[in-house]
């Protein structure tokens, strides 16, 4: 065997952890100590990061554009809500597993149907999936609480030890951080695996992917189901942390919001979800305090600037700046 290509060495190292990958986790733990009064908000940010991360797998890597991802967030949330409400199943960790299973199954089934299509048709069908679930949650109000949802849900302590902390949200925050970390590890392993590379291949050139003999649709459906399961976990953590659920978790607003967050942060980059959710939610939080009537204007202008001048989101802009700095 001749000496290996430099490109092969680079490829074999690409999945290795970089020093800066510790930053978001260090920041997450630091925030726990630095902002004890903002942990409820922090928990919402963590849930949103997890939701956006699940979307990144299908949108950023597999290139499946969806406006219905809240369907799976809602499916996960309603799973733990209904289990708690009707069967007294309030143990949180098994609830997360149940939420992942249910949301994943819905993802598998709906993905199997809608991923026969592409482009705008697919976009419409993802919307329809979500609308169907939303209507179902509205109609079967004996099970779901209908429009009002299910308020005042209580869950058992995490691992039988840590009570959900209704005043300071300390255990909720750490719980959400742990769930995010676990799911992140799953997604990170996936995107660097051959499966993840083949998703990128499907995004980059569908025709070629068929022509190398890849089972394209099976891969897409599987990715869609995994992503749905992760979104389901996000929804379940949301319900565990807040103790309520209503139809808003399933709506277009949430689907569109998470899409905006991912694009703002930079899709197909793993950490775009982190940056996007942080920036979006902090902006939303501070602007709505400072300008209660006109805050959406500030958010809108920011999004327009990013869309115009940072085509690959904030992370894409950062990558370009780092690249320019290194070249000099």
């Amino acid at each position: 065997m001749s000496t290996p290509l430099p490109a092969a060495i680079a490829l074999a190292r690409r999945h290795r952890l970089q020093w800066w990958e510790a930053l978001p986790w260090a920041a997450g733990i630091a925030a726990f100590f630095l902002f004890p009064n903002y942990l409820a908000f922090g928990t919402q940010v963590l849930v949103t990061i997890l939701f956006a991360l699940s979307l990144d797998l299908v949108l950023g890597y597999a290139g499946i554009v969806t406006l219905g991802h809240a369907a799976f967030f809602g499916a996960g949330g309603y799973t733990v809500g209904m289990l708690a409400m009707h069967w007294g199943w309030t143990e949180p960790l098994s609830g997360l597993a149940a939420a992942a299973l249910v949301a994943g199954a819905i993802g598998l089934l709906s993905g199997w149907v809608v991923l026969r299509t592409h482009g705008l048709t697919l976009l419409m069908l993802t919307l329809c999936t979500m609308a169907l679930l939303e209507q179902a949650a509205n109609m079967f109000s004996a099970w779901t609480g209908g429009f009002d949802g299910m308020p005042g849900l209580a869950f058992k302590p995490i691992l039988g030890q840590f009570e959900f902390d209704v005043l300071y949200f300390r255990s909720q925050y750490l719980y959400a951080l742990a769930a995010l970390f676990t799911c992140f590890v799953v997604v990170r392993v996936l995107v660097y695996s051959p499966f993840g590379r083949s998703l990128t291949g499907i995004r980059e050139n569908l025709l070629r992917m068929h022509a190398v003999g890849a089972p394209v649709r099976a891969r897409q459906v599987l990715a869609y189901a995994i992503s749905a399961a992760l979104a389901g976990v996000a929804g379940a953590v949301f319900v565990h942390a807040t103790g309520y659920i209503n139809l808003a978790v399933l709506g277009l607003e949430r689907s569109a919001g998470v899409l905006i967050i991912l694009i703002l942060g930079g899709h197909g980059r793993l950490y775009g979800a982190f940056v996007g959710a942080m920036v979006y939610m902090v902006l939303e939080h501070t602007l709505s305090k400072a300008y209660p009537t006109a805050w959406q204007l500030g958010l809108g202008v920011t999004l327009m600037l990013v869309a115009l001048y940072a085509r690959n989101g904030i992370l894409g802009l950062g990558e370009r700046l780092v690249h320019r700095w290194r070249v000099r």
């Binding site: 290509l5 490109a7 490829l11 999945h15 051959p194 499966f195 993840g196 590379r197 083949s198 190398v212």
Partner: peptide, 23 residues
Amino acid sequence: LENVCIAVAERMGAGGGMWRPAG
């Protein structure tokens, strides 16, 4: 290299592997 790897991985039946990094 990645372009060719994707094809070779599919041929070897390794294209759906989810654990070991592609590189």
